[in-house]
């Protein structure tokens, strides 16, 4: 874990959104936070370099970039779990795959630029494994207020 200064905490807690769209945005944001423009720029660079902050900038909504993403789940018998994980992961459309503690114990994300690849990939996995793939597409997204407090 990274050791943060008091100023770092002010920046991380206070600047997870709302960065001004102005000619001197760092100066405007620094005013809001009660620090100086130079200090804000210097600490942001240090926090990114240290890895405490992944990026400083716009957080793009990946779905607007085109392509389709769908969450899917399977109930995999314990004795076949490793083999089925390999069968699933072999598909390049599988971005993430997690083992979770539930009867539905394998949860993965299918993504492709071509929306039809979502259902065809799920069908291929069902044919290869003989197991049902439950597709759980996003039907509605609710406003997210996620903030990391440090």
């Amino acid at each position: 874990m990274i050791t943060l200064t008091a100023t770092d905490r002010i920046i991380i807690n206070g600047l997870q959104g709302g960065f001004p769209l102005s000619e001197r945005p760092y100066a405007d944001a620094a005013d809001m936070l009660g620090i100086s423009e130079g200090e804000l720029i210097e600490r942001l660079a240090a926090l990114v370099a240290a890895g405490a902050v992944s990026r400083f900038g716009p957080l793009w909504n990946s779905e607007e970039m085109g392509g389709a993403v769908c969450l899917a789940a399977m109930a995999v018998p314990a004795e076949r779990f490793e083999a089925v994980a390999e069968q699933v992961n072999r598909h390049p459309e599988i971005a993430h795959n997690y083992e979770r503690g539930h009867e539905l114990n394998m949860w993965f994300v299918i993504s492709s630029l071509d929306p039809e690849r979502i259902t065809s990939t799920a069908a291929a996995i069902e044919a290869e494994t003989g197991l049902k793939v439950w597709l759980m597409p996003k039907e509605e997204e609710f406003f997210v207020g996620f903030r990391v407090e440090v």
């Binding site: 959104g17 709302g18 960065f19 926090l47 992944s54 957080l59 909504n61 990391v148």
Partner: peptide
């Protein structure tokens, strides 16, 4: 764009 700022 969801927001502009620190992505912790």
């Amino acid at each position: 764009i969801r927001r502009i700022g620190v992505i912790p």
